[in-house]
């Protein structure tokens, strides 16, 4: 375990370092310099030194420090991703478990393909259409939300406005969760131990509960990084579709308006988030079932 943890920590450190370098390269584009490779590399070096001093430059759009701007925007995105994770687990886990094991497995696969084929933005628009026409909720598709409505609010209208993006991120996450679970279940179904232990006299339920379940949960944890990627991608689209001013939305605008300092910082934060979640997931999976994916 210690060995594995050490290796994964090394991997995490290298990954974060790589993300810092990528961020430095992107933000170096914003540095005024002479043309050519050498000045550019010098600019990257300068940015790396700046990063080490926690100076991430200023946003070209707002003129604020990139750190402050991110600080203002990231809570909304994190709240979105966190609540989305909740929805993803609540919706995706039962789906994955019901469809991943048991008689429904074979018939479920094509159904899942159809559901998962919808790109996130299509699903978001469909949700909004349903909310407007069936529930008569207000939606923020075509008008930006003036006051950055907090995701947790006592105001019913704010809650309704917040529910859709949350649901959208959650559903995208649920698709990833159920896929990870079904994959883990399929992997564990191949183990010959089921037949072996069954023949030696254990009951099916005992085998599933005591020996198969940890493997399946470990499989889910080992896919934590992938699920995070799905959630973050969905957050970008959700914030953009529903005009919610978060960090993901800011990234899209920063790239569109060539605000590279801001874009670099957000990209780094997202990559770091993925790396950390992936790291924790792998450790959890290893502790549970000695089954981390090969590094």
């Amino acid at each position: 375990m210690l060995n594995y943890a050490a290796r994964q920590t090394g991997r995490l450190a290298l990954g974060l370092l790589g993300a810092v370098v990528v961020a430095a390269v992107i933000s170096a584009i914003a540095v005024p310099r002479a043309p050519g490779l050498a000045p550019f590399l010098a600019a990257v070096g300068t940015r790396l030194v700046d990063f080490a001093r926690l100076d991430f430059g200023t946003s070209a759009i707002s003129g604020l420090s990139a750190m402050d701007e991110l600080g203002r925007r990231i809570p909304a995105t994190l709240a979105l991703v966190l609540t989305g994770t909740g929805v993803a687990l609540i919706v995706g886990a039962p789906l994955g478990l019901v469809f991943g094991a048991g008689p429904l497995r074979r018939s479920a696969a094509p159904l899942m393909q159809i559901v998962a084929a919808a790109p996130v933005f299509c699903a978001g628009l469909a949700l909004a259409y349903g909310a407007v026409h069936l529930l008569h909720w207000p939606v923020s598709i075509n008008a930006p939300v003036r006051s950055a409505a907090p995701i947790f609010s006592s105001n019913a209208r704010d809650l309704q406005l917040a529910a859709l993006p949350m649901l959208m991120v959650g559903l995208a996450g649920a698709a990833a969760v159920q896929l990870a679970l079904r994959r883990a279940a399929a992997d564990s179904a191949r183990g010959s131990y089921r037949a072996g232990l069954r023949r030696m006299g254990l009951s099916v339920i005992e085998i599933e509960w005591v020996y198969a379940a940890p493997l399946v949960i470990a499989g889910l944890l080992a896919s934590a990084g992938e699920i995070t990627l799905a959630l973050l991608s969905a957050a970008v689209v959700a914030e953009w579709v529903f005009h919610r001013p978060g960090a993901a939305d800011l990234f899209v605008k920063s790239v569109a308006l060539q605000d590279w300092n801001m874009a670099a910082l957000i990209l780094f934060v997202f990559a770091a988030l993925t790396f950390v979640v992936d790291f924790l997931g792998r450790l959890g999976a290893h502790a549970l079932a000695n089954e981390g994916k090969p590094s």
Partner: peptide
């Protein structure tokens, strides 16, 4: 691995932006 840790959508947007 570093690039794989960035959501593909953001990576795509970034490349187009650049």
């Amino acid at each position: 691995d570093v690039f794989a840790a960035i959501p593909a959508l953001l990576l795509g947007i970034l490349v187009i932006g650049l």
